[in-house]
């Protein structure tokens, strides 16, 4: 089949099932027709929560732009959600189910679904007596998150839940979180950045790391269980001694220069 036999609308339809925006942009390199189709609103619509206006002030939502532009505007200008997330076990189940099914309907955000699968598996181990519902993260859970250091699951799952159903959207005590991710976690990072002010992404070596907004002070005994050595030369002291305010006030450049 020759390229001209594949209408742009067909390409756009395929692109609209791409798992992440990064996938869409990668596919735009295939040909001019692909690049053109990658601009379609229908492609980007599903990366934007349909209930955006219910949790973002209208001033944060640019009007009359393409969906792609809207997506980028939101990603580049993260906004605090001044609400608390409350997540019940039923909702957890719903999320995990959605992830396992990989239903496009639930893939509105552009996190890497594979990584989320790993996390979801980790979480499921701990259900239903999930320590994740308690304010402290059980030390036992964290080492199971292979290669990932995620503190404050609340935040992430709150995002994920957004596409699942309407729920009381809120960031709780873990309003701010540190998240260090490895590998192709960029999409994951941008999903978080979308709604979190001062979300800062750091690149340390090959791995993409994320520091999201302010930092929840981490008890050292919990951090020491994490596979930090293989991630970086992160100094636990350095990290844990940063106060919440200090970190949130640092500019992106300053943070990049930190020898984390």
């Amino acid at each position: 089949m020759k390229e001209e036999e594949l209408p742009e609308g067909c390409i756009a339809e395929i692109l609209s099932y791409a798992a992440t925006p990064a996938d869409v942009l990668n596919l735009s390199l295939v040909s001019k027709a692909f690049a053109s189709a990658a601009e379609y609103d229908t492609v980007w619509d599903r990366f934007i929560p349909s209930d955006l206006s219910s949790f973002l002030p209208s001033s944060s939502i640019p009007s009359s732009t393409s969906k792609k532009a809207l997506y980028h505007a939101l990603s580049d200008n993260p906004t605090i959600i001044d609400q608390e997330f409350s997540i019940g076990e039923e909702e957890w189940e719903e999320v995990f189910h959605a992830f396992r099914q990989r239903s496009p309907h639930y893939m509105g955000w552009h996190f890497s679904i594979l990584e989320v699968d790993k996390l979801a598996t980790v979480q499921l181990i701990n259900l239903p007596t999930s320590p994740l519902f308690s304010p402290e993260i059980s030390p036992g859970i964290v080492p199971k998150i292979q290669g990932y250091l995620l503190v404050s699951y609340y935040l992430f799952y709150a995002f994920f839940l957004r596409q699942v159903s309407s729920f009381s959207a809120v960031v709780g005590p873990y309003h701010w979180a540190i998240c260090l991710c490895t590998g192709t976690s960029l999409q994951f990072g941008r999903a978080i950045r979308l709604t979190t002010r001062r979300a800062i992404r750091l690149t340390i070596g090959r791995a993409i790391r994320l520091i999201i907004g302010r930092v929840v002070r981490l008890p050292l005994d919990k951090l020491s269980d994490l596979p930090l050595d293989e991630l970086s030369d992160l100094s636990l002291d350095e990290l844990s001694n940063l106060s919440l305010d200090e970190l949130s006030d640092l500019s992106l450049n300053e943070l990049s220069n930190l020898s984390l």
Binding site: S31, K32, G183, I208
Partner: peptide, 27 residues
């Protein structure tokens, strides 16, 4: 798709630049 790359080198470089963030996380 049996598609031939119809970008010039410059166009492809430009597109990669525009969408740079998408490729940052790739090992």
């Amino acid at each position: 798709f049996g598609i031939v790359n119809d970008f010039t080198e410059e166009e492809e470089a430009e597109l990669r630049k525009t969408n740079a963030w998408a490729f940052e996380g790739v090992d």
